[in-house]
Design a protein around this nucleic acid. Structure first.
Length: 794
RNA sequence: GGGCGAGUGGCGGAAUUGGUAUACGCGGCAGACUUAAAAUCUGCUUCCUUUACCGGAUUAUGGGUUCGAGUCCCAUCUCGCCCACCA
């Protein structure tokens, strides 16, 4: 007598899949296509994680399901390999990131094989492969040529000792996290992608996407479109003018002071002699303050510049202040303060004793009892606008300003342009060189890729540039006979992942990033699955898609039709798995201890709704193993029945599993298969029962299902249910009295549609009678579709 | 502070359009097999009352709409996530 031996079965089928390559997608095919992908992983040294397994298993279940439904499926795989961990490891050990990455990829690939994924391995990609990043550089150049990749000065955290830029999180109490020296905010020239050029389209098309609402809302908030006006203020005794952005031009008469961000250039020009020292000290301190500090202490601070602006509405002289609650990166970095109707301005005015003028009357009966009213209402204290509604004045005021040439409508976005230069070695080199005058030139396309040179020391040095600057050979380049110096910054890793979905459609193309015909056949990606990057990556791909559509390289403007956002798998204690806590579950351990890949995959899909976080349970996985073991036993260790008695439940199961997979309700699909197997254990399974079971099981447990199908001599074509077999001979009809369940009637299927008959049967039932006798029946509701009768009595 | 989402047995969860609440699994209990244990198989398992039947209660709390509410509406409480001085 043999037994279910998952490791043996899995080895057999994995070997066969390697030989036969049954998952290769066909570029020319008349069948409907389906392009599915997970967010490609960063191949860390730790190897595959149970979170990867959940993510990949969702995609695999769908890929196999559609393949069994005779759809031409593209299910590729790749690695997002540039990034800090490999570089830090290189700095520590001297081992080249290229080598570490290769080792890690080999390990990841081997582990993914052990899970039996239906991947088209001929399309594997790796973002740090020169064959790949050549085309990342090509993408950059397209953006550069259109002015959408540009350089600009912006404030960065800078450590004068380490001579390097620091991330906000690397600044602790105003000091460098490494050396402890005070950091400065330094203006540095950096590369940006002009994502804001697509802000409106990125916002408008969100609603049309089949994406989780949560992600859509996050993207909308991130883009943060605000409609309002820009208004120009004269400065008393100066030529300079001050432009502010406001969403409430209707409150202009209530503007009693102005506030500038500490970074504003104009401060130097307008500050009075008396105020100069205090203003300079304030600005220096404010600019030094970290974001973290700003969050901790939100009490308003600021200083008066000694200068006055003229309120264009009423000619009033109003003081100009500097305060760090005004952000330099948003709007114009300057505001008109309306303390009567804005909380922040109100708090500031109270603290510094500035005038507060009410210009909107709270409507009678308003329940808003805050000191400072933000709603709509009748305009007051505003001369010719008095008596009108604030919403109308918002328009009228802008028209009035426009007539005088001192204001206009304006839309502002919270989203900033995407800073993409990094002073790091292990990234895609930016294909730019500088001439003697410092002007940036594109590296000609025939000189791509700009290869990342092999170097010995990966540590950033005194120059403040990436380690690339140390390679003299790298630095020198000749363009059109002119000697130039290369850019030493590399691209943010998100640039590499902004186009990889299209590379999958044509991964070995040496002449182009992708072939137009192939990309337009396969893409947009039909189903994309991941559990991270709600805003950044998923916004950047959308941005590049729109750009390349505008350039004629793509025939679609949205890259991802349906997004499945899967939840995390946490440790059994509900906490995040982490090495330091020692609560990490290694998927390979789970397989090797005897459960096998089929159990692991099925368990991770059964653990709960795919989009919710779940805690690993070492007991519950045993239940899934038992289920697969029962499947195996039915097929290989029990006598098959000769009579077919399970037609109804079989057809119901086909319908349920099919519908559930289409809805991504993987957990209930598995539950339906368990019910089916429980029933087969009671009644006995015939060959037809088993073949259907194996076919439905294959997307979850492909090795076991293949083994079953082989022994049953069956193909794996997805079964169709027959509607006529979904109903048994008799149907259970429930009878309620006043909404309470009182009886269950077995009604012949032909009588179920007959309302009068159902009512008659219900009223004649003995048990029902005990609740209706002696009472007046007011009405009877018969819902044939729900198999339900409700008798209302008094 | 703002936005979004969620609260169902001992636990993970199911209930697809307002129509039989608690599917499926874990855990627990009992039984079969076994010298014994594991494995496997069978049955029971929301709570209260009851040997059992019957009955009653129950989807965070309180109210509402409806013949009928886990599902819709209002209020309250709790938890989670995201954003956070965005003018």
């Amino acid at each position: 007598m043999s037994h279910y031996d998952p490791l043996k079965i899995e080895e057999k089928w994995q070997k066969r899949w390697e030989e036969e390559q049954p998952f290769a997608a066909k570029d020319n095919d008349n069948r409907p296509k389906m392009f599915l992908a997970e967010m490609f992983p960063y191949p860390s040294g730790a190897g595959l994680h149970v979170g990867h397994v959940r993510n990949f298993s969702i995609v695999d279940c769908l890929a196999r399901f559609y393949a069994q439904n005779e759809v031409n499926v593209l299910r590729p795989f790749g690695y997002d390999t540039f990034g800090l961990p490999a570089e830090n490891y290189a700095i520590k050990t001297g081992i080249a990131p290229q080598e570490v990455t290769k080792t890690n990829i080999d390990n990841f690939r081997k582990q993914a094989w052990r899970l039996g994924y239906a991947i088209d391995w001929s399309r594997e990609i790796n973002t740090s492969d020169p064959e790949y990043y050549k085309w990342t550089q090509w993408c950059f150049l397209q953006l550069f040529k259109k002015g959408l990749a540009y350089q600009a000065e912006s404030y960065q955290w800078w450590c004068p000792v380490d001579k390097t830029v620091l991330a906000n999180e690397q600044v602790e109490n105003g000091c460098c996290w490494r050396c402890g020296h005070e950091v400065e905010k330094k203006k540095m020239k950096q590369w940006f992608f002009k994502i804001t050029a697509y802000a409106d389209e990125l916002l408008e098309e969100i609603d049309s996407l089949d994406w989780p609402e949560k992600i859509k809302t996050m993207q909308k908030n991130w883009i943060g479109r605000s409609e309002g006006a820009e208004i120009v203020f004269e400065i008393d005794g100066h030529k300079e003018k001050l432009t502010v952005f406001t969403t409430r031009p209707d409150t202009l008469f209530g503007a009693t002071f102005m506030v500038l961000a500490p970074e504003s250039e104009i401060i130097k020009k307008i500050v009075s002699k008396d105020a100069k020292e205090a203003v300079e000290a304030y600005c220096k301190a404010a600019i030094k303050k970290s974001e973290i500090e700003r969050q901790e202490n939100k009490e308003k601070t600021g200083v008066f510049t000694g200068a006055y602006a003229i309120n264009p509405a009423n000619g009033a002289k109003i003081p100009i202040w500097v305060a760090d609650y005004v952000l330099s990166g948003y709007g114009t970095g300057a505001i008109m303060a309306v303390p009567a109707h804005d909380d922040r301005d109100h708090e500031f005015a109270e603290k510094f004793d500035l005038p507060i003028i009410k210009v909107i009357e709270k409507p009678l009966g308003s329940t808003d009892d805050s000191e400072c009213y933000h709603g709509e209402g009748e305009i007051v204290n505003s001369e010719q606008f008095n008596g009108q509604d604030s919403a109308d004045v918002r328009e009228a005021m802008v028209a009035w300003l426009e007539e005088r040439g001192i204001g206009h409508k304006k839309v502002t976005y919270r989203m900033r342009d995407w800073l993409i230069s990094r002073q790091r070695y292990w990234g895609c080199p930016i294909p730019i060189a500088y001439d003697k005058n410092g002007k940036a030139h594109a590296i000609p396309e025939d000189q791509l890729p700009v290869m990342l040179p092999k170097i010995d020391d990966y540590k950033p040095d005194e120059s403040g540039r990436s380690a690339l600057a140390k390679s003299e050979e790298f630095m020198k380049v000749t363009i059109d006979g002119e000697e130039m110096t290369r850019e030493t910054d590399t691209l943010d890793g998100y640039a590499c992942s902004s186009w990889y979905l299209w590379r999958y459609t044509d991964p070995h193309n040496k002449k182009a990033a992708w072939d137009k015909k192939k990309v337009n056949y396969w893409a947009p990606t039909d189903i994309y699955c991941g559990g991270d990057h709600a805003v950044a990556h998923l916004l950047y791909v959308r941005f590049w898609c729109k750009f390349f559509a505008d350039e004629g390289y793509l025939d679609f403007r949205e890259p991802i039709k349906k997004l499945l956002y899967n939840g995390y798998i946490n440790a059994p204690d509900g906490k995040k798995m982490s090495k330091s806590k020692g609560n990490v579950i290694d998927p390979l351990d789970v397989i090797n201890q005897g459960y096998g890949a089929d159990t692991l995959r099925t368990y991770e899909l059964f653990i709960g709704p795919y989009n919710m976080d779940a805690a690993w349970s070492t007991e519950a996985i045993g239940g899934v193993y038992r289920f697969l073991n029962r499947c195996w036993t039915l097929c290989f260790d029990k006598k098959h029945a000769t009579k077919d008695v399970n037609i109804v439940i079989r057809n119901k199961t086909i319908k349920k599993v099919t519908d559930d997979i289409r809805r991504a309700n993987f957990n209930t699909a598995v539950a339906a298969l368990m019910e089916y197997v429980n029933e087969l254990y009671k009644t006995g399974a015939c060959d037809e029962d088993l073949a259907i079971l194996a076919k439905l099981l294959k997307p979850f447990a492909p090795h076991l299902a293949s083994e079953m199908l082989e022994s049953l001599k069956s193909d794996d074509v997805w079964p169709q249910y027959e509607a006529k077999y979904l109903k048994a001979d008799t149907v259970e009809v429930v009878v309620q009295v006043n909404g309470k369940l009182r009886a269950r009637l077995a009604v012949p299927v032909e009588d179920v549609e007959d309302n009068a008959k159902l009512e008659e049967l219900a009223k004649a039932d003995e048990k029902v009678k005990t609740f209706t006798d002696g009472k007046q029946i007011i009405k009877t509701i018969v819902v044939a579709k729900s198999h339900l009768v409700n008798i209302v009595v008094k």
